[in-house]
Structure formats: C-alpha cells, structure tokens
C-alpha cells in the first residue's frame, strides 16, 4: 500500500518539494552572510542590510514560501487524495483488494502527512535564516524596513518556527475532508484553497492573541515613552480630539496586543480630556515640547495600560498555536476515518 501511495503521490510531491528545495538553497547560501554582517556591525546593522536587494528578495521569498506551502499542500496533495479515486471509480478497484479502507486511508494520510511535515519545515529554515535579524531586534536595533519587524508579530509569526508545519498538516486534513465530501477533484481543490487561506487569515487575527496570557503594564504617559498619538477630526477643525495614545514598552521584540488609556476610575477612554487638545504636541513636533501636558495627565490620574507578549514567549506561543492547528487537523482526520467506513460507491 505504501508503494501504491508513493506511486500516486510522487509527481505532485516532487514538484512541491523540489520548489521548496530551491527556496532552501537560496536561504542556505545567503543565511551565513547575514550572520557575518551582524558580527561586524553595531546599531547600523539594519542600515547596512537595507541596501542589500538580494537579502530582501530572499527574505520575502522565504516568508512567502512558508505561507504558500499550506495552501499548495492542501489543494494539490490533500484534495485529490480521496476525491480523485472516487471521481475515477478507482476506489472500487483498490477497496476490493485484500485491504481494509481504514488501512488504505491511514497509509495515504500517513505518507502525505509525513510529506506535509517535511514541507512545513520550511518555517524552521526561515527561522534559522532570520536569527541574526531577530538577535538584532533583541538588542534593540531598529529601522523602518521589513527586516526589523519582530518575529512575534502576526504578519511574520505564521511563517516562522513550527507553525507552518501545523498549518500544512491542517491544510492537508482540510483537503482530504473536502475531497471526501465534494468528491470532485477540481471543485475540492478550489474549496480547499479558499478554506486554507481563510484559516491563514483568521489564525493571526482571531486566535493568536488569545493563546497565552499577556504581560500587563500600567504606566504614565511621558515624553520619552510616547510612541504615537492621533488627532481625530479635520486638520485645523474647531474641535479636534486627541485619542489613540500609544506608548512604547521597553521590551525589544515584544508583541503589543493592547495599548489603551484609562481615566482615574480605571475606565477606558477613547479620547483624552478636552484640555489636552491645547497642550498636546502638534503634528511634526517633538513630544518634548509638551512635557507639561503629560505631567498634568499623570496628575489627574490618566494612565496607559499595555498588554504585550515579550520576545521570550516566542516558542511558547509557537507550540501553543501549532498544538491548536494539529488538534483541528486530528479532528478532521477522525471525521475522514468515520466517513470512509460508511457508504461510498
């Protein structure tokens, strides 16, 4: 049965794993150079990197590959796994050899699952490639480019570590399940693609911030920790309002999940009191010009509440999220085994 599964899967496996091997090659060649640059540079690390177009291309390539793998595996390995057999009627051939359906499905899922784990490991390679970047972020180096985005942030988190493995295995399970339900290969591939992309969008937006209890920090707003402020209303309007105050936490690489202002009663306020409009730093000026404003805010009892995950929780969150994805995959696989034992002609 392993032979047959391999015989059926090897074409699409070769395409996906071959493409990934090229990406890994590009990462492997450029990765050590990145570490060299870090070794010889200081706070100007990101400035030096910013001019390197090749590194940027490889960075985007690796990240894109890690995000694309689940969708590709789900649609091209998962969806046809059962759907193609049922569509062509070959399930009637193979199920009438001396083999149980359960074992047939287990072998197929096992081999494809193994492939999915291998393909999803691209995330680990990307993590290895990026570790000089992450170390630089940890040292507090920063710039405005893509290289200095902390790896805990949702836009990168799903392309690093073991989450791509979990996502790829889940995508495979989604593909097989959809194929079993839809029973037509092309339709199953399309539905799988849509579902996997939806899961990839929903996971960072809806799930990632709920997996671990964040650290909490309550602080006064000061000229030094202020990172952003927003003026609502038209510029130069009679009554602009000040809101969306954000302060920085002294935690390089942390992922700030909440940054809000509370009044003396501890209630969250959307806008600062009206008097702040007159003393807040004008757009384009340094916060140092408005020290009095911050002092008065502190005296009246306004505080900033920040929730964040420190960079050290990266792997804990990785395991947590991967666990959730694998749990979902397991549920779907269980359904597939239940379904396959029922009527299918």
């Amino acid at each position: 049965m392993i032979w047959l599964t391999w015989r059926q899967l090897r074409g699409s496996a070769a395409v996906v794993l071959g493409a990934l091997a090229l990406a890994v090659l590009a990462l492997a060649v450029t990765g050590p150079q990145l570490a060299d640059i870090l070794r010889v540079s200081g706070t100007d690390f990101f400035d030096r990197l910013g001019t390197d177009g090749t590194k940027k291309a490889v960075f985007y390539l690796g990240t894109a590959a890690a995000y694309a793998v689940p969708a590709v595996v789900g649609a091209f390995w998962g969806a046809p796994l059962v759907a193609r057999e049922v569509e062509a009627g070959t399930h009637r051939l193979v199920w009438n050899q001396s083999i149980t359906r359960t074992r047939w499905l287990a072998t197929k899922l096992g081999l494809a699952g193994l492939g999915a784990v291998v393909a999803g490991s691209i995330g680990l390679v990307v993590t290895w490639w990026c570790h000089p970047l992450d170390e630089a972020v940890g040292r507090g180096y920063t710039d405005n480019g893509p290289f200095s985005v902390p790896r805990l942030w949702p836009e990168l988190f799903g392309s690093r570590g073991i989450v791509p493995i979990g996502m790829t295995v889940l995508a495979l399970a989604v593909g097989v399940t959809v194929g079993l339900l839809v029973r037509r290969t092309v339709a199953a591939m399309a539905v799988t693609l849509a579902v996997v992309v939806a899961v990839q969008i929903a996971t960072p937006v809806l799930v990632q911030s709920h997996l671990l209890a964040p650290e909490r920090l309550t602080t006064t707003i000061t000229a030094t920790n202020l990172r952003g402020i927003q003026m609502a209303g038209e510029p130069g309007a009679a009554d602009p309002r000040i809101g969306r105050v954000e302060v920085a936490v002294d935690q390089p690489g942390a992922w700030v999940t909440q940054n809000r202002t509370v009044d003396p009663d501890g209630k969250v306020v959307e806008f600062l009191p009206a008097w702040a409009e007159d003393c807040a730093p004008a757009p384009g000026t340094s916060p140092d010009t408005a020290v009095a404003c911050f002092t008065r805010l502190a005296e009246e009892g306004y505080r900033q509440q920040v929730e964040y995950l420190p960079a050290s929780r990266f792997w804990a969150l990785q395991w947590m999220e991967t666990g959730v994805l694998l749990g979902l995959a397991l549920g779907l696989v269980g359904f597939c085994f239940w379904r396959i034992r029922r009527d299918l002609t």
Partner: peptide, 26 residues
Amino acid sequence: GFVGQDTPTYAALSVADHLRLGAHLN
C-alpha cells in the same frame, strides 16, 4: 473479487504497475 462498473483502473499506472499493486495488496 469484485470488478466494478466500467471496470475502473488507474489511468496513470502502467499494466505492470497494476500487477504490482495486486501483488502488494493481496
């Protein structure tokens, strides 16, 4: 033994592959 309607076979597999399949699974 069962030969299903329209006598299904794997289009991409060769005749020898089919025999190998039979040998592996029976």
